Simulated scan of single mutants.
Amino acid sequence: MTPIMHTIVVGILSYLTLIIVLRISGKRTLSKWNAFDFVVTIALGSILATSLTSTEVTLAQSVTAFVVIIALQFVITFTSVRSRGVLKLIKSQPTLLLYKGEYCHDAMTRERVVRAEVLAAAREKGMVDIEQVHAVVLETDGAFSVIGQAGEHDSALEGVEGVPGR
């Protein structure tokens, strides 16, 4: 088989296999990225690219590599739901960046977030005055959550690093 024909055949079959394996593995595999998800996604892309461009890698090797990576991802996420230690290993903790209109400068420095990014997150949620913002949280996937009104117990801030009194 010519290298071009190999790329076409293996490319189509690898792509279809990847879609099937991802569908079988569930929604968690395609969730918003944290560092762990990023690594899995890059690994899958690398396997697909190698299977498309290398005539030395067989379709069976590519499929096996897909299955191994997805299986490892499944085992790690399955275990993380049942073990705090594993969860802490693969997921960071959300971090409070602004609380009751006051910036949490130490947290912002540690997370490498500048004031302009916090303000942009507030504007995106339609906040006109930073004093109206109860909290801004940097989530585990790098997104900003903006909480406009305080509740009596701040229950949405449970598990967030830096919340006063916790």
Rank of each mutant, 00 (worst) to 15 (best):
A150Q: 11
V81M: 14
H153I: 06
T17N: 10
L13G: 08
S51A: 13
G165E: 06
V137D: 02
T58G: 12
K91M: 02
I12L: 11
R123H: 12
H6C: 08
T79R: 09
F78P: 02
F144Y: 09
H105K: 14
L22T: 12
G26Y: 12
T2R: 03
V68E: 07
L52H: 04
K100P: 04
I4N: 08
K125S: 14
H153R: 14
E117T: 02
D154R: 04
K32L: 09
S54Y: 07
M5V: 14
M1I: 02
Q61P: 07
A107V: 06
R110H: 04
S31T: 06
R82F: 12
L87G: 10
H153M: 13
R110Q: 13
V128F: 11
F66V: 03
S92I: 08
I90V: 15
V146R: 05
R23N: 02
A156F: 07
V137K: 00
V146I: 05
T29W: 04
E131T: 15
L16D: 01
S46Q: 04
L13S: 13
L87H: 12
R82I: 14
V10I: 05
V9K: 02
A121N: 07
C104Q: 15
A43D: 09
M108K: 04
A35G: 01
R23K: 13
L87D: 14
L48G: 04
S51Q: 10
G151C: 08
R84D: 09
H153C: 12
E131V: 13
V81D: 11
G11P: 01
V81A: 13
V86G: 04
L157K: 00
M108D: 05
K88I: 11
A116M: 13
V9M: 07
